[in-house]
């Protein structure tokens, strides 16, 4: 089973292209900052320089190096996406497994909670929370995003758990006196591991998009630079009107590339795991 998945994985163009883009950008975000000596907010050169040999992505109206900002921004964006998506996935799994496996009143309550958070416009909630908290870190932003993005994951995991609950191997485990937690961890979760991975990838991409909106509206991390914050500053200091396209095109393209690559890799992975979707 595992080997078969690998066999199809290395032959799936969508997965390879998506994963390739993500790895390249991740590599830039992780390694890149070590090659840039000065902090990204330092005024290093002439103002409003177009991209060139010295400053690969040019400089902004303050003379800050946009390549340095981009590299550090990639790092923050990946961090917030992975952390936010991870937290959301964990909450979604806990709620989904519990509701789907336990059923009864636990399911009723969790389901109600899920539906409430689901209809709540989460970005508006994030506005309020972030606005009252004056000093914000990237980690805190990710935490809040994670706390609001889990409902749809919980709902689909609940449905899957529900259908697995009635299977023979789960019955067998239950009859042999295995506790709920162990059954979920040993029998149910491994049986939907591919699905959980796909869910996490989608939450990852979603968190990056939400973070970029928060950054743009002025509620981004106050201790770091991110791709969304670059866009916010570009807008705040009229980069569009000044024609400084190198200020706002790269960060937006970076976000689109990461999220798009995640989605495409997700489709590819789905084809790898789900034989029905494979093309002959």
């Amino acid at each position: 089973m595992r080997w078969e998945a690998l066999y199809f994985a290395v032959r799936n163009t969508k997965l390879l292209v998506g994963a390739g883009i993500i790895l390249v950008l991740l590599g830039i975000g992780v390694i890149g900052p070590f090659f840039i000596e000065k902090p990204p907010s330092e005024y290093v050169g002439m103002q409003m320089q177009p991209p060139g040999a010295e400053f690969w992505l040019g400089t902004n109206t303050f003379g800050q190096d946009l390549w340095a900002q981009f590299v550090h921004g990639l790092r923050t964006t990946f961090l917030v996406g992975a952390l936010g998506g991870g937290i959301a996935a964990v909450i979604g799994m806990v709620v989904g497994f519990l509701a789907g496996y336990k059923g009864g009143w636990i399911d009723e309550i969790l389901n109600m909670l899920t539906n409430i958070v689901l209809v709540l416009p989460t970005l508006a909630v994030l506005f309020i929370l972030n606005a009252y908290i004056g000093v914000r870190s990237a980690g805190m932003q990710a935490l809040f995003i994670g706390l609001t993005q889990w409902p749809w994951a919980a709902r689909s995991i609940r449905a899957q758990t529900f259908s697995l609950r009635g299977r023979d191997f789960v019955d067998l485990a239950r009859l042999s006196g295995v506790g709920s937690g162990r059954i979920i961890a040993r029998e149910i979760a491994p049986n939907m591991s591919s699905y959980l991975l796909l869910t996490f990838i989608l939450l990852f991409g979603g968190s990056i998009l939400i973070a970029s909106s928060l950054d743009f509206i002025g509620l981004g991390p106050t201790d770091a630079v991110s791709l969304g914050l670059m866009l916010q500053q570009a807008h705040q200091w009229s980069a569009m009107h000044l024609g400084l396209w190198w200020w706002f095109v790269p960060p937006g393209a970076g976000i689109t590339l990461i999220v798009g690559a995640l989605y495409v890799a997700n489709v590819g992975l789905d084809e790898v795991f789900n034989p029905k979707l494979r093309e002959l």
Partner: peptide
Amino acid sequence: YVLTATPYLWLAAL
């Protein structure tokens, strides 16, 4: 896929 991965604000800015 490209459209849905695009942040609203970036396409607006472009």
